[in-house]
């Protein structure tokens, strides 16, 4: 089908969404990602029975933590589709892209850039 999806999206492959932990999601934000979508198989279709249900719970846990730390829970989503459903994947990708454009950049990334900029200014001022 060769359908296009927003180039802002990076794919990280995992054996099953059941492998995705809260910690993996948080690490993405710590490293500057603006949003994370966990894309699992349709509910009831998990090859490992409950992997996508576990992922769903972990996405909810990550949302709660991100909400508490001021990043916003809406930056993490779970969506379910069949692996052959490319049009649906494209739709989810576009929706996520639009939601992130609305939410703006990850405040952690902005804060880090500011910190680096001020460190750079201090270093420049200290130069003889």
């Amino acid at each position: 089908m060769r359908l296009g999806y927003p180039s802002s999206i990076r794919i990280i492959r995992v054996p099953c969404t059941g492998k995705v932990d809260v910690l993996h999601i948080l690490r993405c934000f710590e490293r500057g990602a603006d949003g994370v979508t966990v894309v699992g198989c349709r509910e009831g279709d998990c090859h490992y029975q409950t992997g996508n249900f576990r992922a769903k719970k972990r996405v909810q846990q990550a949302q709660a933590i991100l909400e508490q730390i001021g990043i916003g829970g809406t930056r993490v989503r779970m969506c379910n589709l069949s692996s052959s459903d490319a049009p649906l994947f494209v739709r989810f990708a576009q929706e996520m892209h639009a939601a992130i454009m609305d939410a703006g950049p990850n405040p952690v990334r902005t804060a880090r850039m500011l910190q680096r900029a001020s460190a750079g200014t201090t270093a420049a001022l200290q130069q003889p």
Binding site: L26, I65, I69, G70, V108, A111, R112, L114
Partner: peptide, 11 residues
């Protein structure tokens, strides 16, 4: 991880 992100946002 959560603390690091919070501290960063607090500058």
């Amino acid at each position: 991880s959560a603390l690091r992100m919070l501290f960063l946002q607090q500058g």
